[in-house]
Amino acid sequence: MTQTADAAPAPVGAPPPEAHDVAAPTSGRALRRPVARTVVRALVRALVGARYGVVVTVAVVGLWWLVCALRLRSAYVLPSPGRVWSSAVAMTASGELAEHVLASVGRVLAGFAIAFTVASAVGVLALLRPRMYAYLSPALNFLRNVPPLALIPLLILWFGIGETPKLVVIVLTAFVPMSMSITKGLRSCGQELLDVGTSLHFSRGRTFALIELPHALPDVLVGMRISLGYAWRALVGAEMFAAASGLGYLIVDAGHMSRADRVIVGVVAIGLVGVAADRLFALVVRRTLRWGIDDSWR
């Protein structure tokens, strides 16, 4: 549902509109009022837009609180919402949480960038050199069906316990859906559009740049979005071994210490950052692309 500013219900406590708001735009009072009203309206709109999420969150936390209040589970296994909240506040205040979030985001972005580069190269190869791609394709198919986590022991043997094996796990995880989507997008351009290039005597390069690439863009973006989620979810696996930072490390470490409250803070942080990254990506795409946007981007 779209709610226009005018249709938004007047927030309780907001001053009633006054005639001089419009009539005397130079007065400071009159200038501040509309700004305040705009801010309040934006907040109300955001709340209305997120109402399903708010309802679900309240219900889940309420149920959780109830289970704790009735002592159905020991606080050791399931800490109360209040306990988790105070842990979260403490971890935020000390900067600990931000540090782990930044470490994880950095790793995922680096892995994502590498995966995107390789997946694009594979897609272009599939399009321009199908014969060479035919040699590569069985290996890619094999890789697609091996969970990257299964490679961890080998990766540690080969690369040690530094950043490299963590990065490799993220790259492999992000690469799979992205390469499939990019390759599909680049190779699925119909003959109808390619013929237009032929009628204009396009070179191979021009056909690629002016027809095949823009045609593939929606598929490329879908692949990027899906694999961003994949890469983010691979975090815990990647940071499980010999890491000293990152949300994955935070969770595993808290688990070793039997600190369920800190585990929950880590899990919620992963979820929230993941959702935020996805919404941000969708927003940027929606704002820049005028074509090929379907409902999944809303």
Binding site: E192, V196, P214, H215, W291
Partner: peptide, 19 residues
């Protein structure tokens, strides 16, 4: 062509000037 075959990502003016 028998069908328009415009580039769906380009505006009318950009399609006219295509290539």
């Amino acid at each position: 062509f028998q069908e328009p075959r415009l580039m769906p990502w380009l505006s009318a003016a950009q399609n006219v000037a295509f290539g």
